[in-house]
Design a protein around this nucleic acid. Sequence first.
DNA 1: AGAGATAGTGATTGGTCACTAACTTAGAAC
DNA 2: GTTCTAAGTTAGTGACCAATCACTATCTCT
Lengths: 180, 180
Amino acid sequence: MSAEERRESVVRAAMIEFARNGYRGTSTESIARRVGVSQPYLFRLFPGKQAIFTAAAERCIEETWRVFDEASAGLTGEEAAAKMSEAYMGLVEDGEQLMMQMQLYVSVFASRMAGEDEIGEMARRLWGELFERVRERVGGDVQGTTEFFAYGMLINTLVALGFPREHRIWDGFGEREEAG
Amino acid sequence: MSAEERRESVVRAAMIEFARNGYRGTSTESIARRVGVSQPYLFRLFPGKQAIFTAAAERCIEETWRVFDEASAGLTGEEAAAKMSEAYMGLVEDGEQLMMQMQLYVSVFASRMAGEDEIGEMARRLWGELFERVRERVGGDVQGTTEFFAYGMLINTLVALGFPREHRIWDGFGEREEAG
DNA sequence: AGAGATAGTGATTGGTCACTAACTTAGAAC
DNA sequence: GTTCTAAGTTAGTGACCAATCACTATCTCT
């Protein structure tokens, strides 16, 4: 297998491991085991653990747009928003993508506190792009897009906390599921 | 100093350390150093590291209500919501409280994946209570309360990512800052 | 004075982890 | 068939860390 292909499978494995266990909680050993290579070989493919995390985080946001794009292809306005909401629920439901996203937020902040903001710059760039793309897709309304993302972030929280879908806390989504 | 007072200062120190470095990234040594006691003594005050984290997380949510309550005392409806939003921005601005909150979400999910949901039960209980209290304060509107929390969670994300307040991504809050 | 309880410490231990160095194997080029 | 290169391994290191154990110091009550 070529190094490039290996890197790809490392990123995929890393997304799972980092999502489940966080940055510090994930050992390079566990990623290597999932990929099926020896642990030291990861350091041939990436300069270090941080670089693997960054690659996984980058992929995570990109994947979000891919899902939005596929779900709403050819649509605009409320229709597009509704399809994207639905798709987002599906994406986030199993928790893997959601937790990678949360781990990214947490890591960006920690990095900024530690004086380096490389991963933060990347995250803001990709997040900004995602926002703009969604805005274009739903028709250029900034406030509507903001609302869309706001409900998305609330979904993130409720799913992370493990509120079952029948819980009353989800009731407020009844009439506006199209916005989340 | 009494054990109870020590426990209190441990919780406060733990909130800072866990917020900045996460659960795995925080050593009991660093908490002890911040408190000003020896590391082994923490294990006299708490059964283990996890218990310290749980106590800090609990305190974190409780503090949120305390801030909401103080900010909106004697008010109802939109007025109460506006005051609480304003107060929330202040609470979250410096990042410490925000990051402890995020670390909690991440840890709840991880614990659930690991088969135990003790911390999750605590978090859902306190979060549910917070939601109900806010709902009562703003006047019983479930959808409005949901919107309030949705914008709050978006604020969390944007602050965590480090978007400066002047960034266009904040523009959608212009007319509805009262909802965040 | 002395006994009991409470607050607190130093030393240690078994284990984990990111990362390095040095070596091996397999295919392609000539 | 040898040489070159890229993919991959085994063995190891220094640092860190949660938790335990055995101990000391300081009150308080009689």
